[in-house]
């Protein structure tokens, strides 16, 4: 499944900024890797975009935000693969946002 979403907020700053757009595609289990930027249906924070910080020995994913404002990995807690909706593969931002 393909997701096109507009970013709100700056917890993924400077990688993603408020108003940027992303394209993301659902991947099969086992195809999400550490460092991937993913769309997550989080039980507490609802639909969020975060980076996979690590995958523990139980196969659970720990998330992080690139921005200093992001809530910590511990506060987000581990999530399972079913809660990951898709992996970002294209980031659309204004020209002056490009790094």
């Amino acid at each position: 499944m393909l997701y096109i979403r507009r970013i709100t907020g700056n917890s993924m700053y400077p990688t993603l900024r408020d108003g940027d757009y992303i394209w993301a595609l659902r991947r099969l289990r086992g195809h999400y890797r550490q460092g991937d930027i993913v769309l997550v249906d989080h039980p507490k924070y609802a639909k969020i975009v975060k980076r996979i910080q690590s995958i523990d020995s139980n196969g659970l994913f720990w998330l992080t935000g690139d921005g200093i404002e992001s809530v910590s990995s511990t506060e987000m807690g581990p999530i399972n693969h079913r809660q990951i909706l898709a992996k970002m593969f294209w980031h659309i931002c204004p020209k002056d946002h490009k790094q």
Binding site: T8, S11, K50, E75
Partner: peptide, 15 residues
């Protein structure tokens, strides 16, 4: 987006 309304995904500070 302004015509069709692309859904949003949150990268709010969450803090």
């Amino acid at each position: 987006d302004s015509v069709f309304g692309i859904k949003t995904v949150s990268a709010h500070c969450d803090v």
